[in-house]
Nucleic acid binder design. Structure first.
Length: 270
DNA sequence: AGTCGCGCCTGGCGGC
DNA sequence: TGCCGCCAGGCGCGAC
């Protein structure tokens, strides 16, 4: 499941094969993604050079002349750099074919992701509504704390709200809350300043660590086979249901917050 | 304006 | 072995 670290890794993985190369054509095998793919995407972009590859939240942004191609990996999507002779597999929905004989191949079994063609300079609503980047100074305890004041929702739901802060998905929300010693169901408006501070720090730390780990495990970005999750061994609570806490041996608890499975330690998290 | 719940979609799993 | 039902999960959207 791609979270911010995987998206960041995908950007750096494809960038050397994309930037300054010309798009020869784009093959769309399955246009029915989260949002329908523009049927004219190939005719509009063919012959144009990719200027830049950037990330905003969980969106991968390809700058292509006057266009911006917005790619979201949903929860099962991936991008790979392959030789143009590589046969497409079952869920290989889109190929961006390049002048260096490589293809950027978009694969997404569950099709929760999207590939949106947007004019440069036009503030797309999906990007306009995004909150701050978690790894910038804009995301600080003051920002989080003041937003928490008026919100009557679980703190976990708040930090997963991409209109507040981007890139914190279900995995890292749980991990950061565990590290910060905060119960996920804690009401946001009851969060103390000191806990807001801790939480911001732990969110940043867990993301930075995951990016570092993701960078190493996805080295063979250009190979045909996907890699298993790098983070499995470092996770303290995510997916550990009723197992014992790695720190205090107490049985972890599981609950639903906003329809999402949430695991926490009733002793370590207050 | 803030909060809640739904639905999109498929692979993988447990149960029978 | 095979089939069925259920679950995960990002996130926009409509309903309150």
């Amino acid at each position: 499941m791609p979270e911010l670290p995987e998206v960041e890794t995908s950007c750096s993985g494809i960038r050397p094969f994309c930037v300054d190369y010309t798009i020869t054509n784009i093959i769309v095998r399955q246009p029915k993604l989260r949002w329908p793919v523009d049927p004219l995407v190939s005719s509009k972009l063919s012959g144009m050079v990719i200027n830049k590859v950037e990330r905003r939240g969980k969106y991968i942004l390809l700058g292509i002349s006057d266009f911006l191609l917005m790619i979201h990996l949903g929860m099962s999507g991936s991008l790979r750099v392959l030789d143009k002779t590589t046969e497409p597999g079952k869920h290989d929905h889109i190929d961006i074919c390049l002048s260096n004989s490589k293809i950027i191949r978009y694969n997404d079994p569950r099709r929760f992701g999207c590939v949106i063609l947007n004019q440069q300079g036009f503030q797309h609503p999906l990007l306009a509504k995004l909150g701050v980047e978690p790894l910038t100074e804009d995301f600080n305890w003051d920002y989080l704390y003041s937003l928490c004041r008026t919100r009557k929702i679980a703190i976990k739901a708040l930090i997963m709200n991409s209109h507040i802060v981007v890139g914190v998905g279900n995995i890292y929300a749980q991990e950061a809350l565990f590290r910060a010693g905060i119960k996920p169901q804690k009401m946001a408006n009851k969060l103390s300043k000191i806990n807001a501070k801790r939480l911001v720090e732990e969110i940043k730390l867990v993301l930075v660590e995951a990016i570092a780990a993701g960078g190493s495990s996805l080295k063979d970005f250009t190979s045909a086979e996907g890699k298993p999750g790098y983070f499995q061994q470092t996770l303290k609570v995510y997916g550990r249901g009723k197992a014992l806490c790695m720190c205090c041996n107490t049985q972890l608890k599981q609950m639903l917050i906003g329809q999402r499975a949430t695991v926490y330690c009733p002793k370590c998290q207050k």
